[in-house]
Design a protein around this nucleic acid. Structure first.
Lengths: 190, 190
DNA sequence: GTCTATACGCAGATAGAC
DNA sequence: GTCTATCTGCGTATAGAC
C-alpha cells in the first residue's frame, strides 16, 4: 500500500517530466517504462492508460500550485509584491522555459486543439493562477470586472514572454521583459 | 507535371490544416490519406515522409507571409498603421485562434520541445514577422537595438493574447486586448 | 504489487503493378 | 503519376504467473 503510493508518485513524476519535455502526444507508454525502470504491466496496474496518468499529474500539480500560492501569500503581505513574485517565477525557471516552454501553456495548448476531455482536465491549473491573480487585484480595490481584466492581462503578458523565450531560445529577452513587467506593475497598480 | 504540382498543393494544404488543428505529432500519415482522398503510395511519391511535408508547408506559408506583408506595405504608408494592421490580423482569425491557437506559435512550440531539426525548419516563419516588425520600428526612428526590442515585445504581446484566447476559449478577451494594444501602439510610438 | 507474455492494430516505409 | 500490396516495428491493451 505504502510502496504502491511511492510507485505511483514515481510514475507521475517521470511522466510529468516527459509530457513536459516531449509533449503529451509524443510521449509513449514505453517512454514511461524506460524512464521509471518499471514494467509496462506495473504501470498499467497503477494507471489504466495515459489519460489516467495525466489526471494524476494534474492532481499533483494542483497541490504544488496551491502550496506555492499559499507560501507567497504568507511571505508577502502586499498584493503588489505578490504580483511581482509571480513574475519572478519565470526567472526561476528560465532554463526550462527556454527549452520546453510553459509547463501549463504548452500542455493545455496541445490538448486544447482536439482532445477536449484532456484539455478540460488541465484547465484547473490555469484557473488556479487566474483566481489567485484576481484575488490580488481585488485586494488592490479594483472592481471585480476590472480585477478580472487585469488578472487575464497579466497572465497573457507572462504567457507571451514565455512563448517568445521558448521560440527564440532567448533568455536575455526573458530577463529584460520580466524586469519591465515588474516596473509596469509597480507603476500602474501601486 | 502540372497535375503533379496540383496534387502536391493538395497534400500541403490538407496536411497544413491537420497539423494546425491536431498538432504535428498527433497527425498520422493515414490522417492525410483520408483528408486528401489520395492513396498512401501517391503521397509517398510526392513526399518521402512527414518531415518533407512539413518542409513543403513551411515553404508555402513563407510565400503567404511575404505576400501578406508586401500587401500591407503597399496599403499602409504609415508604419503605425502597419503595426495596427498586424494586430488586427488576430481579429480576422479569431475563430481559429480560439480553437487551435496560433498557427506558428503552436507548431514551433511543439517542435521546439525535442525535435530540433523540425523546429529549425519552422523558425523562419517567426523570423519573417520579426524582421518586418523591426523594419517598421526602424522607420519610426528607433535605434536598431530599441527597434528590435519593440519588435519582440509586440510579438510577445500578440502571442500572449493568442495563448489566453486559446486556453480560455475567450474571444471577448481577444477583442478587448487587441483594442487596448492598438491604442497603446498609437500612444507609445506615434 | 510487480513482472513476463501475448495479441492486435496502426504508423511508417518500400516494392511493384497499372 | 497514381494505385494496391506487403513488411516491420511500435503503441496500446489484456491475461496471467510470481
Amino acid at each position: 500500500m505504502k510502496q504502491g503510493n511511492k510507485t505511483k508518485l514515481r510514475i507521475i513524476n517521470e511522466a510529468n517530466k516527459l509530457f513536459y519535455q516531449q509533449g503529451f502526444n509524443a510521449t509513449s507508454f514505453s517512454n514511461i517504462v524506460d524512464a521509471t525502470g518499471l514494467s509496462k504491466g506495473n504501470i498499467t496496474y497503477h494507471f489504466k492508460n495515459k489519460q489516467e496518468i495525466l489526471s494524476g499529474i494534474v492532481e499533483s500539480r494542483l497541490a504544488d500550485i496551491d502550496e506555492l500560492l499559499t507560501a507567497w501569500n504568507k511571505e508577502f503581505p502586499s498584493p503588489i509584491n505578490r504580483l511581482v513574485r509571480f513574475c519572478e517565477m519565470l526567472l526561476d525557471e528560465q532554463d526550462n522555459l527556454k527549452q520546453y516552454g510553459c509547463p501549463m501553456g504548452t500542455l493545455t495548448g496541445e490538448l486544447s486543439k482536439n482532445q477536449p476531455a484532456l484539455y478540460q482536465l488541465t484547465l484547473p491549473m490555469f484557473k488556479r493562477f487566474q483566481t489567485w491573480l484576481l484575488e490580488q487585484f481585488t485586494l488592490l480595490n479594483f472592481s471585480s470586472e476590472q480585477a478580472n481584466e487585469n488578472a487575464l492581462e497579466l497572465l497573457s503578458r507572462v504567457q507571451g514572454i514565455t512563448v517568445i523565450t521558448h521560440v527564440f531560445k532567448d533568455e536575455k529577452f526573458l530577463n529584460k521583459e520580466i524586469s519591465k513587467l515588474k516596473n509596469e506593475i509597480k507603476n500602474r497598480y501601486d
